[in-house]
Amino acid sequence: MIYPESQICEFIEKALLSEVYTTPKPGLVDKHDTGAHRDMDVSTFEKSTAAISPFLAKMYGAGVEFSENPENLCDEKLFAVIRKIGVDAEKAMFAATNGVNTHKGIIFTLGIICASLGFTLKRHKNLQNDFFDDSDELIDDFLDEVFLNAKKMTFETLEKDFALMASREPKTHGEKLFAKYGEKGIRGEAQKGFPIIYKVALPFYKKLLKVNPDENNRNIIALLHIVKNLSDTNVLSRSSPETLRWLQSECDSILGEKTVFAPEDIERVCKLNEECVQKNISPGGAADILAVTVFLAAVSGL
Rank of each mutant, 00 (worst) to 15 (best):
A96Y: 05
L148G: 00
T120Q: 09
F147S: 01
S43L: 11
A166Y: 02
I52W: 07
K171N: 04
E19D: 10
D265G: 01
G35W: 01
L209W: 07
R187Q: 06
E19L: 08
T259R: 06
N212V: 12
I85Q: 12
K152D: 07
T23G: 02
A179T: 04
K122S: 13
T44I: 07
A62V: 00
T172H: 13
F204R: 13
F66T: 00
L143P: 01
K58T: 06
F204D: 13
I85M: 09
I266Y: 05
T49W: 10
K84I: 13
E274A: 11
L110T: 06
L143G: 02
S116G: 05
F108L: 04
R245C: 03
A190M: 09
V100I: 15
L177S: 04
P203W: 12
D39K: 03
R83C: 03
N72Q: 11
N234C: 12
D75K: 09
N98H: 13
E145K: 15
V64I: 14
H32A: 13
V200G: 01
V100G: 03
G86H: 00
T172D: 11
Y181C: 07
L255S: 11
N101T: 07
I2H: 09
I281G: 10
K184T: 15
I254S: 03
K160E: 11
L290Q: 13
F155N: 03
I281N: 11
E156R: 02
A95F: 06
P24F: 09
L224G: 08
A222P: 01
G285R: 14
S300M: 14
D88F: 10
F204M: 12
L209Q: 07
K271Y: 13
A222I: 06
S167G: 02
E71Y: 11
A163D: 14
K25S: 03
L202Y: 08
A36D: 10
F132V: 08
A50T: 08
Y21G: 05
V211G: 05
C74F: 02
M40I: 04
T97V: 09
V42P: 03
T102N: 12
V211F: 06
G193L: 11
D232W: 05
I226F: 10
A51P: 03
S18M: 08
E76A: 04
E250C: 09
I221T: 04
K271T: 12
Y205H: 14
D130Q: 11
N229A: 04
F295D: 06
E10F: 07
A95E: 15
W246Y: 12
D88C: 00
V100L: 10
K77N: 05
C276T: 15
V100H: 06
I197R: 02
I107L: 05
F55W: 15
V29H: 02
T233F: 04
R38Q: 12
I106P: 06
G27D: 05
C251Q: 08
K228E: 14
D144I: 02
N101C: 13
L28Y: 02
V235M: 08
I226R: 07
I85H: 10
G99R: 03
R238W: 09
L296Y: 11
K84A: 11
V100K: 10
C9W: 06
V292A: 15
I266T: 08
V292Y: 06
T34V: 00
K14L: 13
T44R: 06
N129P: 04
H225Q: 02
A297F: 03
Y198L: 02
V299I: 15
